[in-house]
């Protein structure tokens, strides 16, 4: 018997008897299969669940289906408008081929510390909705590749508040396309007469999960943006990152670059003020 089931509506989740591995775009699953992992998994193809492909604009929130792809994020103008950091991360994630298939739900469930959509979702105050519960993204990840998801619990939607704020994302990798981030930074804030409010900073690939840089946030809160403040914020964020040495990069490099990226984002914003 084939170890495979395909469901076409959310209600069918209840019918699943075995513990399953959910299959959406397959872009993270097939490289593992190629390496001989997941061979004994029972797969459940969810790619046909239409309701999870929609993005709905509600009064206060964006409700994004878990099967929305990175290409959808680039093409649907609501993302640039309400979730610019997520839009910017989609532009630089993978390649056209990967973006056409990879889903937001999959990027989250895969729980890589370098998953490009995750730092933006942290600064955009996203909530992750599953078939069982709704959780703040801050509480969703337990470690590299580890989440709070229980067996057969499926991410169904991502909820982003529609507050009027700015958000940005930048990453550094070995090359432009298809690069897994060595370091990434997402930032969100409101700017009122040159003063930063409601600042949120999240760092990718410099810790066991994506991290909030809370000291940096506290430092920037209420500050008037200037070259001096930007430099200091870069130093703080470098000290707050918790990177490791691995085959992609050295910790010392990642720390330094985390600071540089933050500075670059804020310098870009400062030019615009002047």
């Amino acid at each position: 018997m084939e170890k495979f089931i395909k469901i076409s509506k959310l209600a069918d989740l209840k019918k699943i008897k075995n513990p399953v591995k959910f299959l959406a775009g397959g872009t993270d699953i097939y490289p593992l299969l190629k390496d001989g992992f997941l061979e004994n998994e029972f797969f459940c193809d969810i790619s046909g669940i239409k309701e999870l492909k929609e993005t709905k604009i509600k009064k206060d929130v964006l409700e994004i289906g878990a099967l929305v792809t990175f290409s959808d994020v680039i093409e649907n103008p609501v993302f640039k408008k309400y979730a610019n950091a997520l839009y910017e991360s989609a532009l630089v994630m993978g390649s056209p081929q990967i973006r056409n298939r990879a889903t937001l739900g999959g990027n989250i469930a895969n729980a890589s510390p370098s998953g490009d959509s995750i730092p933006p979702l942290f600064v955009l105050k996203a909530k992750i909705k599953t078939n069982l519960r709704t959780v703040d993204i801050d509480r969703f990840f337990m470690g590299p590749k580890k989440t709070i998801l229980k067996k057969n619990e499926l991410i169904t939607r991502i909820i982003i508040p529609k507050e009027q704020k700015e958000s940005y994302f930048m990453k550094v990798g070995p090359r432009k396309a298809l690069a897994i981030s060595k370091v990434s930074v997402a930032m969100a804030f409101k700017m009122q007469k040159g003063v930063l409010k409601d600042v949120r900073v999240a760092l990718g690939a410099v810790g066991p999960t994506v991290l909030r840089a809370k000291k940096t946030e506290d430092f920037l809160e209420g500050k008037h943006l200037s070259d001096r403040i930007i430099k200091k914020a870069g130093e703080i964020v470098s000290s707050e990152a918790m990177p490791i040495d691995d085959f992609r990069s050295l910790a010392v490099y990642r720390r330094k670059v985390a600071g540089s990226i933050l500075e670059k984002i804020l310098e870009g914003r400062l030019k615009w003020v002047r």
Binding site: L23, G26, T27, Y30, R101
Partner: peptide, 26 residues
């Protein structure tokens, strides 16, 4: 065979995809 090189690219419903990462059921 891991979606990094694009040699296996085909067009599915007008979109370019890596056929090495594409389950035939889809």
């Amino acid at each position: 065979g891991k979606g990094e090189c694009g040699a296996c690219s085909v067009i599915v419903d007008g979109k370019i995809v890596n056929s090495c990462l594409f389950p035939v059921c889809q």
